[in-house]
Amino acid sequence: MELRHLEYFLMLSKELHFTKAAEKLGISQPTLSHQIKMLEKEIGYSLFNRVGKRVELTKVGEIVQQETLNIRDSIQSMSSQITALSKVEIGELKIAVLPGEITDLVSTLCIQFNQLYPNIKVIIETTDQVEKSVLQNKADFGIDFQLNPNDLLEVTKLYDEEFYLISNEKSDTQNISFSSALDGPLILFPSIHQCRKLLNKTSCEIGKPFEPIVETSSIRSILNLVRNGVGRSIVSRTLYEFYETEDLFFQHIDKPSLNRAVYLVMKRNCFINYAAREYIKLLVSEIEKLHFHIEKEAIDSLHSVVL
């Protein structure tokens, strides 16, 4: 049974006249008669009683008519839902990110995304296993810093970022050594954050332990505490750029410098839905606007494949 047979049947059940139904369908009357006979043969019952040039539905025809109308409605509903999904009118977007400051970046972009697509539900999964979430289809894509080689993943380096020492007092120098940055009271993220893990690792490498005076997961709290002179902090450029920091001052950290790469992680050869593509567009646009050190070839490739 083909959908066109049901389409012909519905038109004939509406017009109850072979010639008129054939004209509206754009086919010949003999063709319509043949197609209806094929449908009746497949069902095993007559669907119409022929009364001269006019026809009337049989009892079986009435049943088929109702069920065919149900089928048509279901197809229309399916088509509407697929169209809506493709235009991000419904559905959800799932993003996997590492615990810490990158969550602030993702969450901040959600404000703009929600303004553009208010009916899309955004789920941000904070996890130490971003790659696993992507591979298990728990996330449409992920944002990660440290990656293990995996042939099942499509990984794009978005940008390199450095870390700043920030304070409420302007310094005479633009740069400061990592060892000197650890001197004095520090306000930092807890050890679970990726930024703090990098600080802890680097301090161990140079043999200079440190103990923050305040630990908090809130970037706003960190900025306010620094603003009020409680201490200094070390934050990624991402966070420094994304929040109101015009009244604060920063120094580049060197000897050694603190840098990390930020990666976009997707499942290889997997369909990237419209919602994910639109969010990634916002992310890339924001990165380019802030003039981060980006991998041009990688971004160009991302534009051609995803965006």
Rank of each mutant, 00 (worst) to 15 (best):
M1R: 07
P212T: 08
L153N: 10
Q29K: 13
Y45R: 13
L188P: 09
T19L: 13
F9V: 05
C270G: 00
L223G: 06
V306G: 03
A298W: 01
G231I: 11
Q65M: 14
S179H: 11
N228S: 14
F189M: 14
K14N: 08
F48A: 04
L282T: 07
Q29P: 02
E2L: 11
A298I: 10
F48I: 03
I213A: 15
L223Y: 05
S79W: 02
F210I: 10
L264V: 06
L198C: 06
D172H: 12
H303I: 12
R277A: 11
I187M: 09
I75A: 04
S46V: 01
K24Q: 11
F18C: 06
Q29L: 02
T156C: 09
R196G: 01
A275P: 07
Q194Y: 07
I120W: 07
A275W: 04
S203D: 05
G61Y: 11
E161H: 10
V235L: 15
I36V: 15
T83S: 12
L85P: 00
E131F: 00
Q66F: 08
L198D: 11
F249N: 14
K59W: 04
F271A: 03
L3D: 12
V88M: 10
A84C: 11
L12V: 01
V155A: 07
L165T: 02
D160G: 08
I166H: 09
D104S: 04
P212G: 06
E162C: 09
L10K: 06
I27S: 10
N119E: 08
Y243V: 12
E241L: 13
D254L: 11
S171F: 04
K289W: 00
F145E: 05
E40H: 05
H193N: 13
E42I: 08
Y164E: 07
I176E: 13
S257H: 07
Q129L: 09
S13I: 02
V97Y: 01
R220Y: 10
A261W: 01
V88C: 15
R220W: 01
I75E: 00
I234V: 12
F9I: 05
S233C: 10
L93H: 03
